[in-house]
Design a protein around this nucleic acid. Structure first.
Lengths: 157, 157
DNA sequence: CCGTTGGTTCATAATTTACAGAACTAAATT
DNA sequence: AATTTAGTTCTGTAAATTATGAACCAACGG
């Protein structure tokens, strides 16, 4: 497959972003390629050849991404190949994952307040305040999403 | 230093959380200890001994956390030791880092739309929609924080 | 029923990381 | 001046991660 320099560059940057989010390098590059390529759907072979990764690495990466719901595939009758693409619900999911992560942090911090006994209550107050902010954020986010959806439809009119 | 089982357990869990956020294990445990310990401020020695990590690992971890602004230290005259503690602004920072990360993702996605030319515009629309949501979120967050602060002061009255 | 296609699985090799231990240093103490 | 304290820096390595290539397999095509 032909990719412009800019596309190749961006695949690497997206790759690094996803590596930082816990994906392994080859998996991260596959995500990058599927995002950046002109074709929305790519075959196993195209992915493997374009990224110069072995069949086994490609197989692992694709199965990993399928299992975690990041990608999906379609098939066409009379064609044994699978055509992989980014799952479009993935955007919402990606965002949700970030929010869940903040929720996990918040749970840990609540437990911190339970197990430690600080002589100086200032530290507890600061922590309590952050916890309360995260709770507030969690409560308000659905509203925010709703508002955004409203603005979206407004613009279309 | 004496820590309860619950404290030790929580240090590990906080450690794993921070490992997943890109910290190396020893660094992540230091963060956990400073959060969970009854004393807000701990010395190099206390950290090293309590976590059973070598002086070199402790030195690296503390310098790393100092450089990234996660911790700070005070000193007392006539005492050569440094007393390390979590930087309290750190809560706000931690949250900001998450938001910055979403911002980075958003920038990458905007570039995706620039470099690829999809035959089927549906894919571009879905991506565009997510980008616009992230933009909206970024715009609205300051308001949200302001609202929260208002509610906070209300409760105190 | 034999070869090809589209993969998967396994053993292994190559990197990377993460830490320990020892040697070192600069300031303070005796 | 010698020793102790409070760390830092350097080197080696164990362990973990990641990818490769070869062998394998199942389904289809001729």
């Amino acid at each position: 497959m032909i990719l412009s320099d800019k596309q190749r560059e961006l695949i690497e940057e997206i790759g690094i972003y996803h590596e930082n989010n816990g994906f392994q390098p080859a998996v991260a590059r596959v995500m990058g390629l599927l995002l950046v390529s002109d074709k929305a759907e790519l075959t196993f072979e195209e992915i493997s050849e374009t990224l110069n990764i072995s069949k086994s690495a490609t197989s692992n990466a694709l199965n990993m991404l399928l299992n975690t719901g990041h990608i999906e595939y379609t098939t066409f009758s009379g064609d044994r190949k699978r055509y992989f693409r980014i799952k479009s619900s993935n955007w919402r999911d990606l965002f949700n994952k970030k929010m869940e992560d903040l929720g996990e942090l918040n749970n840990l911090l609540k437990r911190v307040l339970e197990v430690r006994k600080r002589e100086n209550p200032v530290y507890d107050q600061k922590l309590q305040s952050f916890i309360s902010f995260l709770d507030y954020l969690k409560k308000q986010l659905p509203n925010l999403i709703e508002q955004w959806e409203k603005e979206q439809t407004k613009e279309k009119v």
